[in-house]
């Protein structure tokens, strides 16, 4: 760090719990270099593994890289790709079978040489070969080249060391504030007694539940998301109203023109909160009922053909992406287009 780290960064990409934070770290590092006037570019490289077990659980490389790019641009605050940090993504080794850490290291070193990169940031949870530990041998192999190797300093849930962190306080304050306000509203702002008991109750609630009710502390993006959610609410209400009229027609129609069926699709939203929002929104819009969500795979029961088409057109999904990831994330194609080649609708 002290010797002026390079801004030409290579990040190997694979599904991992700390991928999001690794991306954020790499982008932050590159940005610091860009601000210091150096050339800054981040290449996210996905070395394709030979592993074929369990393909359901993992994204295909392109969609994972798409997601990484969305994250990176989000962190840059860069909606139109004009920032001073260049973001590149690439899939590597689709023609060879990567077996050992040496193979991975060689792929990465070759890529770095081709693209004039001299710094590698490794996700500490990077395990491309499934459950086998990879990071240490990979770093060892990489360190025999000229590249600078670095592990992204990301927090992992299982390795919490300190009891109180800054984000804990922010979580506590948020839950405390919301509870206190709720208490006072319900009580009708009725005098000193309410203010004292309210503060006490809110403190107890926040102490007990702040870690549970908020999985991560509110950050600088939260107000913007709240604003976008305000745009989303009327849109959702309108969709609900419209769809309810359709369902009323179907239910009251003498011949009961329904055509129920299960639809399964993989939603292009990530993280817990957006997935929950989308699942609940789908359930709220009549004609569609989220039965189950496993990771990003939605199982939705639909009542009519038109409800099914609406769902796969992805209007709701796009709106949820807008709320959580910003305008440029709405460009991702709709579920119907994404799965044009895999027809899984049960008849």
């Amino acid at each position: 760090m002290t010797t002026g780290p390079s801004g030409r960064i290579l990040v190997p990409i694979g599904e991992s719990v700390t991928l999001r934070k690794t991306v954020a770290y790499a982008v932050r590092e590159a940005r610091e270099c860009a601000e210091a006037g150096e050339a800054a570019t981040v290449h996210f490289v996905y070395p394709i593994t030979g592993r074929v077990a369990d393909p359901e659980e993992f994204d295909d490389p392109e969609s994972l890289l798409d997601r990484v790019e969305v994250w990176a641009r989000e962190d840059l605050g860069d909606e139109d790709g004009s920032a001073e940090v260049r973001i590149e993504t690439a899939v590597r080794a689709s023609d060879v079978y990567l077996f050992s850490p040496i193979d991975y290291a060689r792929t990465l070193i070759d890529y770095a040489a081709e693209n004039d990169l001299d710094r590698v940031i490794v996700d500490p949870e990077y395990t491309p070969a499934g459950s086998a530990p990879m990071v240490q041998p990979l770093e060892y192999e990489l360190s025999r080249s000229d590249l600078t190797i670095e592990e992204a300093p990301v927090e992992r849930k299982t390795r919490r060391a300190r009891l109180v962190r800054g984000s804990d306080l922010a979580q506590f304050a948020t839950v405390f504030g919301a509870s206190y306000l709720f208490y006072l509203v319900i009580g009708g702002f009725a005098g000193t007694f309410d203010y004292v008991t309210g503060a006490f109750s809110a403190a107890v609630t926040a102490a007990l539940l702040s870690q549970i009710s908020l999985s991560e502390a509110p950050d600088s993006r939260t107000p913007l998301r709240a604003l976008r959610a305000l745009v989303y609410a009327p849109y959702l209400l309108w969709e609900i109203a419209k769809a309810n009229v359709t369902i009323a027609y179907v239910v009251l129609h003498p011949r009961l023109p329904i055509d129920p069926g299960m639809v399964e699709f993989k939603a292009a939203v990530w993280d817990d909160v957006p997935v929950t929002t989308l699942a609940n929104s789908i359930t709220l819009t009549p004609g569609t009922l989220t039965v189950d969500v496993r990771k990003r795979r939605f199982y939705v029961h639909t009542l009519t053909t038109s409800a099914r088409e609406d769902l796969l057109d992805g209007g709701l999904e796009r709106a949820v992406r807008f709320v959580f990831y910003g305008r440029q994330a709405t460009n991702i194609e709709s579920p119907a287009e994404r799965r044009a080649d895999e027809e899984v609708t049960e008849e």
Binding site: I240, N244, I247, A248, V251, I258, P260, T283, L284, T285, P286, G287, L289, H301, L303
Partner: peptide, 9 residues
């Protein structure tokens, strides 16, 4: 299908 009616309408 009944869950649709019971929950949303």
């Amino acid at each position: 299908t009944r869950a649709h009616a019971a929950s949303k309408s």
